[in-house]
Simulated scan of single mutants.
Amino acid sequence: MSTVDTARGAAGAGPSLRRRSRPLEIIITALLVVAATVSVLTTIGIVMSLVGPTLGFFQEVSFVEFITGGKWTPTFSDKHYGVLPLVVSTLLSTAVAITIAVPLGLGSAIYLAEYASDSARRTLKPIMEILAGIPTVVLGFFALNALNPILRDIWPGGEPPEFQNLLVAGVVMGIMIVPTIASLSEDAMSAVPRSLREGAYALASSKRQVAMKVVVPAAISGIVASFVLGLSRALGETMIVTIAGGLRSDRVTFDLSEGAATMTAFIANIGQGDLPVGTLDYDSIFAVGALLFVFTFVLNAVSIRMVRKFREVYE
């Protein structure tokens, strides 16, 4: 058969192939639309479930008192509704987690993307990602019963940390989000064109210079996205801080060696069905949840803006 006949046959088969693929494409498109719609409707449902009880809460409690008050004791006889202790504890434990996770996660990603051999990468990355599949309740008990005794033994002088404290909770949360940061950052670095590396090596750059001055800047949008995703997960973590962080919320504390309740720990502890529905104490759960939702929303909005900015620079 001549080349012309082959081309004619391929041209004739083209419309037939396209006609056969259309039903499958329609089905896939419909499934994607359904998935996107479910995601949007879920978000709307979450917002609607928070709005009603939150508005009812603020009809009884001043918003200024809620934001600036230094005591959170809705279930005490002497009731105070200042959410500041929960916010400070949440930010402290999250800061500890990010301090642990960012260098470990980014260092792991740089090693896997630039230094490890293909066989080492195929072996180490799945092993590292196993950590992401460990239930957080297990990590919480690990923090309380394994890591905290070690921390108390090596604590330098003075009073040792409390049995439940923000430091050990933050450290274990940092360990928890290391695979998230490492995996996403490594994917971003692996997507950097090989030509950029080869150009840097042609200019007599070392492997360290290529990794730190070429690959990391070129993949910065994906790296920033991994940081924000890890930060969001630490901010919304519940079981670790509930088990290992403590539940004290009657005062603001900046001491990591003390136990204190975070926003998620309060929600998990109080939302167990003991409070009558429709009471002010019950509505306080939704007010804290709405505040946490706002924090996460603002964080994601800022991260999207940052990712777009860096992506424009390196496109």
Rank of each mutant, 00 (worst) to 15 (best):
S2M: 06
S2V: 06
T3L: 11
V4L: 15
A10W: 13
A10V: 12
A10N: 10
P15E: 04
R22C: 06
P23C: 09
L24K: 08
T29L: 13
T37W: 09
I44W: 06
I44S: 09
L50K: 07
V51A: 13
G56D: 10
F58A: 08
Q59P: 11
Q59S: 15
V61M: 06
V64E: 14
E65P: 15
G69M: 02
G69W: 04
K71P: 13
W72N: 09
T73W: 01
P74H: 00
S77V: 15
S77R: 15
D78N: 09
H80T: 02
V83F: 12
V83H: 02
V83A: 15
P85T: 03
L86N: 03
V88P: 03
S89P: 01
L92Y: 03
L92N: 02
I98S: 12
A101Y: 00
V102A: 11
V102W: 04
G105V: 07
L106A: 08
A109R: 06
I110V: 14
L112A: 10
E114I: 05
R121M: 12
R121K: 14
T123Y: 07
L124K: 01
K125I: 12
P126K: 04
I127V: 11
M128Y: 05
I130F: 14
I134D: 08
I134M: 10
L139G: 05
F141Q: 02
F142Y: 12
A143P: 01
N145E: 12
P149D: 11
R152V: 05
R152Q: 14
E159F: 12
V168R: 01
G170V: 04
G170T: 04
G174Y: 05
I177D: 01
V178K: 07
T180R: 02
A182I: 02
A182H: 05
D187N: 12
D187W: 07
A188M: 01
A188S: 08
A191T: 08
E198P: 00
G199F: 00
L203G: 03
A204F: 06
V210K: 01
M212P: 09
K213D: 14
V214D: 02
V215L: 03
V216F: 04
A219N: 06
G222A: 06
S226R: 07
F227S: 02
F227D: 08
F227M: 12
V228C: 11
L229A: 02
A234E: 00
L235F: 00
M239L: 13
I240L: 08
I240N: 10
V241D: 04
G245Q: 06
L247P: 04
S249Q: 07
T253I: 06
L256N: 02
L256K: 05
E258Q: 13
A260R: 03
A261M: 01
G271M: 05
G273D: 00
V277D: 12
T279I: 01
L280I: 09
L280Q: 08
D281C: 09
Y282L: 11
D283P: 10
D283T: 09
F286R: 00
A287T: 03
V288K: 00
L292S: 04
F295C: 02
T296D: 05
F297L: 12
L299P: 04
I304D: 15
M306H: 03
K309Q: 14
K309G: 12
R311M: 14
V313C: 09
V313D: 08
E315D: 15
